[in-house]
Amino acid sequence: MGARLTYPEITLAEDRTYIVTGGNGGIGYETAKYIAAHGGRVIIACRSEERADGPDTLNVEFMKLDLESLTSTMEFINAYKAKGYPLHVLICNAGIAFISYTETADGFEKTFQVNYLSHLLLILHLIPLLRTSGPNSRIVMVSSLAHVFGSFNLDNIQGEQSYDRFTFYGHSKLYQIMSMYALDRRLKNTGIGIFAVHPGTVETGLATNNWTESKILVPITHNFLKLFLYVFQSPAIWETLL
Rank of each mutant, 00 (worst) to 15 (best):
F166R: 08
G159W: 08
W211F: 15
G191A: 05
K64D: 09
T221E: 15
P128K: 01
D184T: 07
G28K: 10
M180N: 10
V114P: 02
A36G: 03
S234P: 02
S172R: 04
S133C: 02
D184P: 04
F108N: 04
T201Q: 12
P135G: 15
T71C: 10
T167A: 13
R41C: 05
Y7L: 10
T11Y: 09
L229N: 00
K226R: 11
S234Y: 02
L124S: 05
A45N: 07
I44V: 12
T21E: 03
K81F: 14
V231Y: 11
S144M: 03
G95Y: 04
T111A: 13
N59T: 04
L154S: 12
H222G: 03
L5W: 08
S100I: 03
P219K: 01
I44D: 13
F224N: 12
I220A: 14
A196K: 09
T102F: 00
P235I: 05
L120R: 15
N93G: 02
P219S: 07
G54P: 07
V140G: 02
G2N: 03
K215Q: 14
D184Q: 13
E14G: 00
F62N: 07
I27C: 01
G28V: 09
G95D: 15
I43N: 04
M1N: 04
A37I: 01
S100L: 09
G205K: 11
P199M: 03
Y101C: 10
A207D: 15
A82M: 10
M180F: 02
I237A: 00
I43Q: 08
E9P: 01
T167E: 04
L227A: 13
L120C: 11
K226I: 09
T240E: 15
T132L: 11
T104F: 07
S144N: 01
K81W: 00
P235M: 08
Y85I: 08
